[in-house]
Design a protein around this nucleic acid. Structure first.
Lengths: 138, 138
DNA sequence: TATTGTTATACTCTATAACTATA
DNA sequence: TATAGTTATAGAGTATAACAATA
């Protein structure tokens, strides 16, 4: 019982954290003049790692038709571009433009900046947390 | 330096987790025939804890005008209801209906169910994680 | 005067269904 | 035949500006 309770408590807190952060995303996105989903897309597109459009739909858990418009608007802003895929002529892969790469770098820095309440944990505790999360997230 | 790196690594992983979960939300919401933001609203409305509409806008980091339509649709489905606020006649507070309370309970159970990869951590590690997260989230 | 919530408007996000090109 | 992506369409989510009621 303690076993199960412990697991649930930790996961419950992870869920709470996730939903609180979800509430912060619109404001963070607005700092970059982006929408929440645009932030998510940019986050998923790592530099020099083109992603097929279908893979994006999977990661966002949305319909493929939705990705078309999403990509249209990001492409119109010059942040990403469609490229043909060498392995299959039906597939279009997405790559960051130089401009998109710069925005993504700033975004990553912004998202990775720990909030001030992180000070509550000592260096050792932070490392312990990082190790636990690493094992949890692959 | 180790200090700062440790903090960033842990937070970076929290951020990664958050965005991965964000990708899962549409599918979870669909299980309940809800949209992601509707799940978020229901999660924020605890039973017997009426919330002013303006507070909801804050928590979602969205404009107040947006909350009107959001609440309209949830109210039309009989999950929540607007009530007058005793302390200020301009304010409308939101409360779960009995039906909304039931849906929220199921939702909470669904969201709190730890994924199978939680097995990677021992009971002691899960407790340690829960303790660290508790201190981090207030 | 300032604030809470609504309305009108416009644009983005999203899914469904039908389509094109390729496999 | 099956799959990747697009188009057309409709509805939900979102912000801005103007408004009504109340503080």
């Amino acid at each position: 019982m303690d076993h199960k309770t412990g697991a649930c408590r930790a996961w419950e807190l992870m869920t709470r954290f996730w939903l609180v952060q979800r509430g912060h995303l619109p404001a963070v996105a607005a700092e970059f003049d982006l929408s929440p989903v645009q932030v998510h897309v940019l986050y998923l597109l790592e530099p020099d790692r083109p992603v097929p459009m279908g893979r994006l739909a999977e990661a966002l858990a949305c319909d493929a038709s939705n990705v078309t418009g999403l990509v249209d608007r990001l492409e119109a802003r010059g942040l990403i571009e469609r490229q043909p895929a060498s392995f299959d002529r039906r597939v279009r892969v997405l790559a960051l433009t130089p401009s998109g790469t710069r925005v993504r770098t700033q975004l990553q820095r912004r998202l990775s900046a720990p909030p001030k309440r992180f000070d509550r944990l000592s260096a050792a505790e932070r490392q312990a947390l990082a190790r636990l999360l690493e094992r949890l997230l692959d």
